[in-house]
């Protein structure tokens, strides 16, 4: 017992003389250091007391932080200096013990596991198999409720928006956009009427409406009627990571994504010109009804926003 202990804590049983240089402070002139430390402690003490005072009178936030931070820093520096300059300089040594045990000890552990456990399992293979199977199945089925209860299945929600045939375009206040509302070079974020303040309207259906100078501008073949009176509408969701593409440069005719600077050519079906976005912004076909209000001819012809596996291979 005692032999073993000596191995584990092999410190000298001998004392050390009080004037041993290992016990001397590291500082050349301990008195001066002590005085300096005393000053830092006094400063620290005053500042932490000041923190209390500042809190008491509800002073500005920076005074709270300055007093607390300054006080703690001074106290800490004083304490470090105390340890560094006034405490025994050492150096002291300690043996490292090999953590590894002897070969026999390891064999004994391995034998215990393999022989006892292995023997039990080998003799009752069927039982072990059944138990293992049961736990394995539980491990798998336990995942079902854990995962499945977290949220609904995507189903078709990622593919559709709330833009339908004849949906009115409204701004954030719910006001319908009229043909005369936007001057050339204007941009406004629009939503399907009634959804302007809903999560889905904001996050999925958000669309930018731009007015350019040309009447009935065709951004791409097959979209001849989509931009009446120079009104062009594109999904505001970046096809890269879904940030709102709200940055419109009217002379360059670019929509720029503020997140990663993908640039979409407004006059060419919002085809990406630069940056990481892989697909054009889907365009919303518009028409102007008899009263002069802007409405959608139909929904988007493709899923809006960033890419995902089931999205399909079509680029537009």
């Amino acid at each position: 017992m005692s032999d073993h202990d000596e191995l584990r804590t092999p410190v000298s049983l001998q004392g050390i003389a009080a004037d041993d240089p290992h016990l001397a402070p590291a500082a050349h002139n301990p008195q001066i250091v002590e005085r300096v430390i005393a000053v830092t402690f006094v400063l620290g003490l005053l500042l932490v007391a000041g923190f209390g005072a500042c809190y008491w009178v509800n002073a500005k936030p920076w005074t709270l932080g300055a007093t607390m931070g300054g006080g703690l820093t001074f106290l800490g520096i004083g304490l470090i200096a105390w340890g560094k300059y006034l405490m025994p300089r050492g150096p002291f040594v300690e043996e490292r013990h090999e953590l590894a045990n002897s070969e026999d000890d390891r064999n004994a552990l391995a034998a215990a596991i393999v022989e006892r456990g292995g023997g039990v399992v080998k003799r009752r293979k069927m039982l072990a198999g059944l138990l293992g199977g049961g736990l394995g199945i539980f491990g798998v089925v336990a995942m079902f409720p854990l995962l499945r209860s977290l949220g609904p299945l995507p189903k078709g929600t990622l593919f559709s928006t709330d833009w339908k045939k004849g949906t009115y375009l409204v701004d954030i206040t719910g006001r319908r956009v009229h043909q005369g509302d936007l001057a050339i070079g204007s941009i406004v974020t629009v939503y399907p009427a009634g959804l302007e303040n809903t999560d889905r309207g904001q996050a999925v259906d958000q669309t930018v409406l731009i007015r350019i100078s040309n009447e009935n501008f065709t951004t791409q073949k097959g979209r001849e009627t989509w931009g009446p009176a120079g009104y062009l509408a594109y999904s505001k969701l970046c096809t890269h990571l879904g940030c709102p593409v709200g940055l419109y440069e009217q002379e360059l005719q670019l929509l720029v994504c503020p997140c990663h600077q993908s640039m979409f050519d407004v006059t060419n079906g919002a085809v990406p010109q630069f940056g990481p976005a892989p697909r054009p912004l889907p365009q919303l076909p518009l028409y102007i009804d008899a009263d002069g209000y802007l409405r959608s001819q139909d929904g988007y012809d493709q899923p809006v926003g960033p890419g995902f596996w089931e999205r399909g291979a079509s680029l537009s």
Binding site: G65, G69, L75, G76, L79, I80, G83, G90, V93
Partner: peptide, 27 residues
């Protein structure tokens, strides 16, 4: 292992350092 013992030298230094880290963050 050669160095300073846990008590009191290392403890003083490391506790002081805790104060300094907190102090700098507060500042």
């Amino acid at each position: 292992v050669v160095g300073t013992p846990m008590f009191p030298v290392f403890m003083a230094k490391t506790t002081g350092f805790l104060f300094v880290v907190s102090g700098v963050i507060a500042l």
